[in-house]
Nucleic acid binder design. Structure first.
Lengths: 239, 239
DNA sequence: GAGTGGTCTAGACCACCGC
DNA sequence: CGGTGGTCTAGACCACTCT
């Protein structure tokens, strides 16, 4: 514990505990030892130790049981879903993502886009249409609508990185997103774009993303090749 | 605030705040008023008030900003995804779900099932195959594998309710689930079962569910008619 | 500078679990 | 019964935001 650091004590502790769990120094199923002793041993107060432990409970790494103790969860259970971007997913998987910007302009909002973004129908919104490639192969067709003036959506920057990075770089704090995932058969145009035959199954996702004021910052309608992509995520049950 | 109640004070407060937000008595975007005054007014300590507020922040209803205050989020942003069961989803949507148990037996675990459930390959597991109907129409084909002896999987009970309710009724505390959602074209057999033509797009979901000891309690391979069903969920961004 | 949330302390009593 | 986490208090100081 480093009291001179600006990093909060509870956060230092939670990071140390998390590292110990990841590295197996705290075995799955083992008990953490009671909070009072732990606090005394570390020279911290019990609430501070509890805050550290609680953050790992929220992450799904620990379970507390009254009268029993705090236990390390067996390791198949890992961290929950984060608001991910396809670009980051591909990059993390070592797939060398690339983006081709097909279209990029402001246009009047359709009823659906206006409803999603919470702007008047017909008002100008930014529309970006992109093709996402991995290893040079098309993976997904991405259509996004954003309020005008929100980001610097220079096509060159859009080809270099993901939309979410641009949004975050504009100082916007993302808060939540509402997603719908479905499937449908490819139209001839979609098939041509994604190198799939007509009628091939496609995964579809619609997503509206909100910042921490509750304002919609992005509405996306995305189509993925089902043969190349699936969504994987982890849910935690609220206690 | 009722101090004689066994319900924790912070929980009473968080429920009252949540109700006030739901009913619009606390307007979206409005500030909650500072924690110290709120504590004094309610006769609570500040940590207790903070705990109540924090639980609503975790639910995504409030946002805290240092130096500014605690703000009610605009209401498009609602609660996050819960570990849902198709049965409950359909029932909540007033779709009158029904279940037909197609198969129900113990059988040796395949390599994939064994890996998902964390049991030895070839050991006996319970296999349940069901067809889920809504308004008498097939919606999904559900295949589940469970460790033997975990639940009382009487076929009659399986037809009456969802698998998750049976698992919970067996005293198991669900903790988390890992899901993969994809799509594929219907085989002739799948088409016949789900009243879809061959080649029709189907949504697929694989899910392994864990209890709070980290033990896998269920592995499901489900197929949904894409024309009738999509997954909708809400994500919160971890701060 | 005034006001806000963020962190931290050092206690206290209670409810639940397993022996 | 002893030990655990769950709740609660009454303070304190700090970091940040806005004016």
């Amino acid at each position: 514990m480093d009291r001179s650091s600006p990093v909060p004590l509870y956060y230092q502790l939670s990071q140390q505990l998390e590292a110990a769990i990841e590295q197996g120094r705290l075995a799955p199923g083992s008990l953490l030892g009671n909070e009072i002793d732990l606090a005394a041993r570390l020279g911290l107060s019990r609430p501070t130790v509890r805050q550290a432990i609680q953050s790992l409970v929220d992450k799904g790494l620990l379970v507390r049981r009254r009268g029993v103790g705090t236990q390390v969860l067996h390791s198949q259970v890992r961290r929950p879903l984060e608001l991910s971007s396809l670009y980051d997913d591909l990059e993390a998987a070592g797939q060398h993502p690339a983006t081709r910007v097909l279209h990029h302009a402001t246009e009047p909002a359709t009823a659906r886009v206006a409803a999603a973004l919470g702007v008047p129908e017909g008002s100008e919104v930014l529309f970006v249409e992109r093709l996402r490639l991995a290893h040079g192969e098309p993976m997904a067709h991405l259509r996004n609508h954003l309020p005008v003036g929100l980001i610097d959506a220079d096509p060159a920057r859009l080809e270099e990185t993901g939309l979410y990075r641009l949004i975050r770089a504009a100082g916007i704090t993302l808060h939540s997103a509402r997603q719908t995932v479905g499937a449908r058969a490819a139209t001839p145009e979609e098939g041509a774009r994604l190198a799939e035959p007509e009628g091939a199954p496609l995964l579809t996702m619609e997503r509206t993303t909100y910042d921490d004021t509750g304002r919609a910052v992005e509405f996306g309608s995305h189509v993925y090749r089902a043969s190349r992509y699936s969504f994987e995520f982890q849910l935690l049950v609220r206690p």
